[in-house]
C-alpha cells in the first residue's frame, strides 16, 4: 500500500511538472462553458453571420437549463474523451519504452501497485477536470438560462465521470502492451463502438457503460437515472482493465 502511495505522489508530481494538471482541466472548462454560451447567444451568432431567412429566429426557443447542462456534459463524450485518452496513453507505455519501468520493477513493488497508482492519478485528474468543467458549465447555465439543482448536477457529473473513467482505464490496459498512439486509438475505438452500438441497437447495448451518458442526462432532465446494469458493467470493465494491465506488467514484455 505504501509503495502505491509513493508511486501515486510521483505520478501527481509528473502531472504537475508537465502541466497536464493545468491544461486538461482548462480544456474541460472551455468545453463546459461553450455549451450554455453558444446556446444562449445562438440568435446573435446567426444574425452576425449574415443572411438569415426571416422567421427562422422567431421559432428559436432557448432549451431548458437542465437540457443545456446535459448537452454540456455530452461535450465531454467526444473531445473530452479524446483529451483524456491522449493524456493517459503514455502512462505505462512511455515507461516501458523508455526503460524507467525496469528500475521500478527491480524493487519490491507489485505490478498491481504500479497500475493502481497510475489509475488513481488519472482518476484525480479526471475528478479535477470534470469537476471544474461541470462547475463552469453549471455556473453559466444558471446565469444565462435558468436555475439548476446543484445536487442533480453533481450526481449527473459523477455518473458521466464513470463513463469517462472507462476510456482512461481502457487506455491504461492497452498501454500496458502496445505503443502509446495505438493504445489511445483502441481505447477510443472501443468507446466509440459501444456508443455507436447503443444508438443503433439500444435494446442490445443498454446494459453497457455507454448507457451511463444517457442516465446522466436523465438525472438532469427528469430526475431519475438509476439502472443497475450500466453501473455494474462499468465497474466490471474497469476491474478487468486494471487486472489485465497488472498482469501484463508482471509479464514484463519489455521491448528490447
Amino acid at each position: 500500500m505504501s509503495s502505491t502511495w509513493v508511486l501515486y505522489r510521483k505520478e501527481m508530481l509528473e502531472m504537475a511538472r508537465s502541466y497536464k494538471l493545468i491544461w486538461i482541466p482548462v480544456v474541460f472548462i472551455i468545453l463546459g462553458i461553450m455549451q450554455p454560451l453558444t446556446t444562449y447567444y445562438l440568435p446573435e451568432i446567426l444574425k452576425a453571420s449574415g443572411d438569415v431567412p426571416p422567421g427562422l429566429l422567431e421559432g428559436y426557443e432557448i432549451p431548458s437549463a437542465a437540457v443545456v447542462m446535459a448537452q454540456a456534459l455530452g461535450q465531454y463524450g467526444t473531445i473530452g474523451m479524446l483529451v483524456l485518452a491522449l493524456g493517459s496513453m503514455n502512462t505505462l507505455a512511455g515507461e516501458r519504452y523508455s526503460g524507467t519501468l525496469e528500475l521500478i520493477l527491480v524493487r519490491p513493488v507489485s505490478p498491481v501497485a504500479i497500475v493502481l497508482a497510475k489509475w488513481f492519478a488519472q482518476l484525480t485528474l479526471l475528478v479535477v477536470a470534470l469537476g471544474l468543467g461541470a462547475a463552469g458549465a453549471a455556473y453559466y447555465t444558471e446565469q444565462l438560462i435558468g436555475s439548476l439543482s446543484w445536487g442533480d448536477v453533481i450526481a449527473a457529473s459523477g455518473v458521466y465521470g464513470l463513463w469517462l473513467l472507462c476510456v482512461v482505464s481502457a487506455t491504461l490496459l492497452f498501454s500496458a502492451f502496445l505503443r502509446p498512439p495505438v493504445a489511445a486509438f483502441l481505447a477510443l475505438a472501443l468507446m466509440a463502438g459501444l456508443s455507436l452500438g447503443l444508438s443503433i441497437l439500444p435494446a442490445w447495448f443498454d446494459w453497457t457503460p455507454a448507457a451511463l451518458s444517457g442516465l446522466s442526462a436523465g438525472i438532469l432532465i427528469d430526475g431519475e437515472g438509476f439502472r443497475a446494469a450500466p453501473y455494474l458493467s462499468d465497474s466490471i470493465l474497469i476491474i478487468i482493465c486494471l487486472a489485465g494491465a497488472s498482469f501484463l506488467t508482471r509479464k514484463n514484455n519489455f521491448p528490447d
Binding site: 509503495s3 509513493v6 508530481l13 523508455s98 524507467t100 528500475l103 513493488v109
Partner: peptide, 20 residues
C-alpha cells in the same frame, strides 16, 4: 533511464522509498 523531469535527489529518494 530516469524521469527527466525529476532532480537527481528526488529520484534517489523515490527509489529508496520504493525499497521500503
Amino acid at each position: 533511464a530516469f524521469y527527466g523531469w525529476m532532480t537527481g535527489q528526488e529520484y534517489v529518494v523515490f527509489a529508496a522509498k520504493l525499497s521500503g
